[in-house]
């Protein structure tokens, strides 16, 4: 029965490539987003080392007027942990997609929620990170490092937030009517977005945090 419905559906929505529209569109969107994040990260790299006042990402700085010593801002161990959390969410996303494909409602809900929870945990880490940086004296207005750092990681965080909302929405749809093979493509599109946001983070972590 389910296949009959799916076939009728497929026939009704003939496409030239055989792929659903949303899948083509998400790839176009991802291509566009690559240029978006590339522009942000490039600006960070161009401005690296050009800030005229501290604090700085990797080196301490003494304020000449007050004599106050600012520690290096970035805390690599903490961010490594949040990076690990975000990468694990991609694994959960894969498992959620597999569960939806086989109509395993119990596990699809568990893995959707797990993915969302891991994403939310990452956002929690980011909130903690941002607050502690501000306490240590780095605001978005402080210097070029602050401006480029907060805007790049902030836009990434906004993307994760959108992904978490998407996951939670999907979870409630699953709870309401149960996601089956027909919905697998929608979960697939969401998963592509989610993995993309993850990959962007790997680039951000490399270029903003690890690169000295």
């Amino acid at each position: 029965m389910a296949t009959a419905v799916a076939e009728h559906h497929a026939e009704h929505h003939y496409t030239s490539t055989g792929l659903p529209h949303t899948k083509i569109a998400i790839w176009a969107f991802i291509g566009s987003e690559c240029f978006f994040f590339a522009s942000l990260i490039s600006t960070y790299l161009i401005y690296k080392g050009r800030s005229v006042v501290g604090p700085f990402p990797h080196t301490p700085w003494t304020d000449p007027s007050t004599g106050h010593v600012y520690h290096p801002i970035l805390n690599i161990p903490v961010t490594s942990t949040s990076t690990f959390v975000l990468l694990m969410s991609s694994l959960a996303m894969v498992l959620a997609h597999a569960a939806v494909e086989r109509s395993d409602h119990k596990w699809s809900r568990i893995w959707l929620l797990t993915t969302a929870a891991l994403g939310a945990t990452f956002l929690g880490f980011q909130a903690f990170e941002f607050t502690s940086f501000v306490h240590e004296g780095l605001k978005i207005t402080t210097n070029l490092f602050g401006s480029t750092f907060f805007i790049t990681t902030g836009f990434h965080g906004a993307h994760v937030t959108a992904g978490v909302l998407w996951l939670i929405t999907m979870y409630f749809i699953d709870k309401k009517r149960g996601l089956g093979p027909r919905d697998a493509v929608n979960v697939d599109v969401m998963a592509l977005y989610w993995h993309f946001v993850d990959v962007v983070w790997v680039a951000i972590f490399t270029f903003l945090y690890l690169l000295q």
Binding site: I46, Y47, S51, V52, T141, N143, L144, S147, I151
Partner: peptide, 13 residues
Amino acid sequence: FGTNFYEIAAGAD
């Protein structure tokens, strides 16, 4: 919001 992206005094290009 007072950021420095185009603020030459802050070292901007």
